[in-house]
Nucleic acid binder design. Structure first.
Lengths: 362, 362
DNA sequence: CTGAAAGCGCTAACAT
DNA sequence: ATGTTAGCGCTTTCAG
């Protein structure tokens, strides 16, 4: 920067101004400085800026570790053959489809961060020990102006610690009485609306529910909405069987296969996420059971694949991109004004009625 | 940090040491410092560290802008109804499936960065003017120790400029004689091996090729491999029709429909990517044309969906995760030793033979 | 093994 | 509109 200043015949302060508030500088001077910047290939140091300005212009997104720290080989690529040819028979899907979910949030964060002139740093909370997690997080916290954390990727007490050095916003998961912003999605209302549709418009009286993991607050909310809808229509939800699919396509398929074998298929199978609903379809298809004529199947999430399956999947679409964007907006608001009251936002969802309950659509 | 030092009864230098090279400090002192850190909820400033140490511990990944700066609303969420219910008839897919590709690279980068103790900053090159792109990039460059850039997301001259302040590694795309590392994938060899399999093991003599955009260097390589295989078997590739699908599932479907209508289906349709191959299957299915009995269809990329389509898609799998990891390794190597010769790495691919050419697999 | 001191490259008053 | 100057919070010699 000193070089640039010298080259342009101005002081470093002017260079700084040209780069941060160009309007405070005469156009001719500006031009000269920019010229020097270009000639000298000057790239301003983010660290120095961050230090001096007390804000880095970076926001952080902390995601739960989906991948189980896979093969940690240091792969010496040179040795391998350039092409390998092999047969690839079908295998159960291995990757948890859950990441599709987060990728959309990520896109939303990046998009909004960009709009607001911030950079985005991402960090995946890989298992390891609690301490290493804490170090990772605190390290991250030191580099950003605000941190968005996806539910269940880090313990609340650690977040609270970080929360008093920078704004933290908690995404999805359980709403708790913390000192940070909280953004969730209307899981309950979405599932209730969907279930009511099934009851009111399709005359379903005995839907089965296929749940996810026990510790999923999202799923708990969804089941709550399901139960509420039934109760509101005079149906006792506790009398209905609940199945367990762990949010996994494969597990759901197995569960559905059991149902088929036992001849215990209900009129409708309400799944706590799309992956499981797809798994159910996987089981139904070869058995020759028609959807929705013989059985209605519904999902939750609104993943892309559900819009292309056969039949196309009725589901509740979560605004994942908006989740990310809202997170960034919340952080930016708080960076601007650090002592705002913590706010709790619940984003709207959309029930998408498709073929798996409606049959062929126009 | 001064507080921590005071609290622990040591100098700031010692605090620094405990946090960066714990082994240089007596265990008891260390413990005292760590204690103070915890009590004071101290989070070290990344900016200050970066400035003093001359390295930020952050790597950057620059991706091409896939999303067309969608609705830039500032969405006041409060006003919306919590649930909307609506019918959702099938529509052509809108999102370019291409991002799936990059998400995998991103995962690879994040994984390897984490392993190497770096953070990862991501930045999407949203259209805009060339200057704004340059500003974005230079801004990013100032915040990281190294930058990985995915092909075609930024002009080479800008990258060169950045390249002399920090290491730049170029991913995929055309191999050029630049001053930075370059990591690609064996597009040519992969497509050649696949095509040879079709000729040698399935007796195909007149495959049609479905290309992507004209300006895709990846596609050019792939077509090159295709042509080489034919020539090597005494078939003249220029005598064979080439179709244009723009890497789009919808376009490919339309093209295939034309072919069907015209009764001009070849024995095999070799697609330059998986999305197009899936589009072809979309067209073939309702027409009652059997794959692979009536026509063989192949893709390229190895996206998840191809492993689950009906029939499952024969393809060439690109090591996207490895691409990301290799990029990070290259950057780290260069951060360690800045004046290494630029290296050019070509990652191996795998031809995955599945039902769309082999028929039912064990 | 620990402390003292000199910056790292910028921004933000404050002057002019 | 531009220059001067005092740090920002840390790492890193260099002594001890």
């Amino acid at each position: 920067m000193y070089d640039v200043a010298a080259h342009a015949g101005v002081s470093i302060a002017t260079v700084s101004r040209v780069l941060t508030r160009p309007d405070d500088v005469r156009a001719s001077t500006q031009e000269r400085v920019l010229q020097a910047v270009r000639e000298l290939r000057y790239v301003p140091s983010g660290s120095a800026r961050g230090l001096a300005a007390r804000r880095t212009g970076v926001l952080g997104l902390f995601l739960p570790g989906v991948d189980a720290v896979e093969d940690l080989s240091d792969a010496e690529v040179g040795e391998q053959r350039p092409v390998e040819v092999r047969r690839d028979p079908a295998k159960p899907d291995q990757r948890p489809g859950a990441n599709l979910y987060f990728e959309e949030v990520l896109r939303g964060c990046e998009l909004e961060a960009w709009r607001q002139g911030f950079s985005l740093m991402i960090c995946v909370g890989r298992g390891r020990s609690p301490e290493s997690l804490e170090i990772t997080l605190s390290d991250l916290a030191g580099k950003v102006d605000g941190l968005a954390v996806i539910a269940q990727s880090a313990p609340h007490d650690v977040l609270r610690r970080i929360g008093d050095s920078i704004p933290v916003v908690y995404l999805a998961g359980q709403r708790r009485d913390d000192d940070f912003d909280h953004i969730t999605v209307r899981n309950r209302e979405g599932m209730r609306a969907l279930t009511e549709h099934l009851i009111d418009d399709h005359g379903v009286r005995d839907p089965m529910y296929l749940t996810g993991p026990f510790d999923s607050p999202d799923d708990a909310e969804r089941y709550g909405g399901f139960a509420e809808a039934l109760e509101g229509r005079g149906i006792n939800p506790t009398a209905l069987p609940v199945l367990h699919g762990e949010f996994s396509r494969e597990r759901a398929r197995a569960v559905a296969e059991d149902l088929i074998a036992g001849g215990r298929l209900p009129r409708a199978l309400v799944c706590a996420n799309d992956q499981m609903a797809l798994g159910v379809l996987d089981a139904l298809r070869p058995a020759g059971i028609r959807v929705p004529e013989d059985i209605i199947v519904t999902g939750f999430d609104g993943i892309d694949e559900g819009a292309r399956s056969t039949p196309r999947l009725t589901t509740v679409m979560q605004p994942m991109l908006e989740l990310g964007r809202a997170a960034v907006r919340a952080m930016v608001a708080r960076v601007t004004d650090p002592d705002l009251e913590p706010v709790s936002t619940e984003l709207p969802v959309t029930v998408l009625l498709r073929e798996s309950c409606e049959g062929p659509l126009g």
